[in-house]
Amino acid sequence: MNPSWPSINLRVNGEHHSLNLPPMKRLLDVLREDLHLTGTKEGCGEGECGSCSVRMDGELVNSCMVPVLQAQDACVETVEGLACDAELHPLQKAFLEFGGAQCGICTPGMLMAASHLLAHNPTPNIAEIRDGLAGNLCRCTGFIRIFDSVIATIASNAKSQQERNAR
């Protein structure tokens, strides 16, 4: 306990944490070092590559650019929170089937950006998908199979929706 540091309360993937932290510590490092959620990756440390993308109160942020003080009382979602128990999230299933992940280092951030995109726009067209993922760099795939994975997710979500409606 360092009395000169604030107490930071935040909710990560639905779980509440109260932490005594230097206020300028990067959210990325808090997730990785203090909460041991190493799924979120550092690629550049300057908000360019998007590998550290997480959702914070419904916004997509580069967690390397967020001092933890700014995350006070926030709800943070990381890649570890995407899958529901053992069941992969539809995006994860599509990335697996369509080759959306290669080396995997950009994948957690890419998944968070894609899930953020679909949360705001459930049926984006290809231009909107490109725009939605433009802040996340992938050096392996050339992005094509990432687009394919997102498109497949939209189709499978629509199908699930139809099935729910039919019931």
Binding site: R32, T38, T40, Q92, F95, E97, G99, A101, G104
Partner: peptide, 21 residues
């Protein structure tokens, strides 16, 4: 055949362990 990537699920779940992890 397009067998899914062997280590794909670990990478997609954020469980794959890179050196900094």
């Amino acid at each position: 055949s397009s067998v899914p990537r062997k280590e794909g699920v670990d990478k997609l779940m954020g469980r794959a362990r890179y050196v900094d992890d």
